[in-house]
Design a protein around this nucleic acid. Structure first.
Lengths: 211, 211
DNA sequence: CGTGTTTTTTACCATTTGGTAAAGCCACGA
DNA sequence: TCGTGGCTTTACCAAATGGTAAAAAACACG
């Protein structure tokens, strides 16, 4: 009896397994980010991945396993821009740098942004643990860092929690609500430039210390 | 053969029809805003509405008809806060008033906010026409109004399109990403107050004319 | 080449889901 | 009292969906 590849005792993965798992996860990202978990079907994912449905199940334990694998893989890199915010840099530039990285991610990885957005909007049924264990500590850490900067007079006083969340709200909006944005601001290139400038203006305005 | 109530030649609706259609739409709002269109099932809606599935179909032509009816009904009132922004008022107060009304809607009608959010994120398959026909004209009109205020020196110069979209991004974030917000800022009441204050700070900061 | 293992396909299956047919119920006016 | 017409339920159905069994094909490697 050939042991299925993705079992609890993890074995080395062959080249084929690595390649096919990648293809599946990419296809699943397409489908899940467009329909959410319940709205997505294995057939859709299989077709997008260019393989048969039973073949999906050969590489992943089921629909839920694919979704979880996706969320796990993405959670890490999704938080990287925030991790990079460093205590040793110039406060205003650190925050603006974070804003820029986040905007860049929205433009380059809109599917990932939407996947998270849908998951959260639907109550994060498969991600709440990650929010508590990964996001929350990082969030608290960076809030403390920002609070420290503010105490030192390097930034205007703001609620750090609200500050970070407003960065998320603004930067993710352009990925998540892309359809709407494109209706209202048809010129995509100009829209992005304007968005970048606008968001930067906002955070410069509320963070520049008033001397 | 008793003619189904909701046909092309619209007839008067009885008290029972009005009551039951309301119940169905309220239940559908619950379910659709939590699972999206494809992820929602008629059985879920029927149970939430406290009636049998065939009874749903008696009042609406099908799943899609319920969803469309919901979106139609909501689109109107959802744009009301923006419509109220008036040329004759004080510019800064008009915009801040809009921001406050939008925040209030996010708090009072999170389901509606999520329903729209999911629909847009998924590419607005059933709402694109409305975006073009309802939202776009209003958006353009209010952009022109704001641009006029800025030209007159009553507001700091900003891109009006980006300004309105950033209002949406910030105000809707608290409804749509409620699950995440609650993980990071457990005290709901305090969080809400802080959010209101923060959002107001932002728009005051970037709109107050620098005289 | 031959043999054991990994990968893929074909043929299914049970459940769920959107929807229908038709019979039953119930209020109300003649 | 009996219809009559709006409302509701029961009993279904065909298609879609997540998943399985097992044979077939492709592969690795001595």
């Amino acid at each position: 009896m050939p042991a299925p590849p993705a079992k609890t005792p993890e074995k080395k993965r062959s080249r084929i397994q690595i390649r096919n798992r990648r293809k599946i996860m990419d296809a699943a990202l397409d489908v899940f980010s467009q329909h959410g978990f319940r709205g997505a079907t294995l057939d859709q994912i299989a077709e997008a991945a260019g393989m048969s449905k039973p073949n999906l199940i050969y590489y992943f334990d089921g629909k839920e396993a694919i979704h979880v694998a996706l969320l796990n893989a993405l959670m890490t890199e999704w938080l990287d821009p925030l991790r990079e915010m460093d205590a040793s840099g110039d406060p205003l530039e650190e925050i603006l740098g974070y804003v820029r990285r986040k905007m860049e991610m929205s433009r380059q990885f809109p599917r990932e942004s939407r996947l998270f957005a849908i998951e959260i909007i639907q109550g994060a049924p498969r991600m709440l643990p990650h929010l508590e264990s990964d996001l929350k500590p990082l969030f608290d850490e960076k809030c403390a860092l920002i609070a420290g900067w503010m105490d030192a007079g390097k930034l205007a006083l703001q609620d750090p929690q609200q500050l970070i969340m407003s960065i998320w709200a603004l930067t993710q909006h352009f990925a998540d609500f892309d359809t709407q944005v494109r209706v209202l601001v048809p010129d995509e290139v100009a829209g992005w430039d304007a968005a970048n400038a606008h968001v930067e203006t906002i955070f410069r305005a509320i963070l520049t210390p008033t001397g």
